[in-house]
Amino acid sequence: MIRISMAGAGALLLDAANGAFSDATQQRIWATARLMGAQPSVIQAVPGVNNLLVTFDVNDIDPPVVERTLLETWDRTTPETTPSRDIEIPVTYGGDFGEDLALVSHFAGLSIDQTIALHTSGRYSVAAIGAMPGFAYLTGLDPRLAIPRRDTPRLKVEQGAVCIGGGHAGVMPCTSPSGWHILGRTDLALFDAFRSEPCLLRLGDTVRFVRVP
């Protein structure tokens, strides 16, 4: 069952979440986003985590028309796998670079090394890109590491921070406030506005974290 709601007059949010995160639902979100993004009056179709935001120009089209198209598109869409690349992200764990590593280990009931091993053993999938330029919501985090977000977000988390939050993994593409827990850091640039492809990661990519000294 899906829900479509208004996000102002010029945007609609399709929410297909039903309990736990679903890979099949996410693949259907990507397929719907691809088709909706190609509609002439649509400005952007932005996949979230098991949901999709569609923005459009109400000077050109009536919102109920977009709503019908969105519903019809979803109904005829099947899960679609996108071409996936394998991306490795080198991470320096702990110490000054991973101030929450001890806290997360304690939460998981594991040693520091076991926690790092669990984080590096995962095969993560880029489910959605958003929040900050080039930030990827990575699904596939081991449930033992699904620590809730901090009660109060940090006002400043450095670019390159490798973090986990709300059951997802991620890497900070720029220095920004965040409520996620920091395990380590990487030197990889996840976003560069001047690259022909600004985001390092694409939807559907497979990501692994590799421990480096």
Partner: peptide, 11 residues
């Protein structure tokens, strides 16, 4: 407990 989703200015 919502999954992360796109938001527009004015939300």
């Amino acid at each position: 407990n919502l999954f992360s989703h796109g938001i527009v200015p004015g939300t």
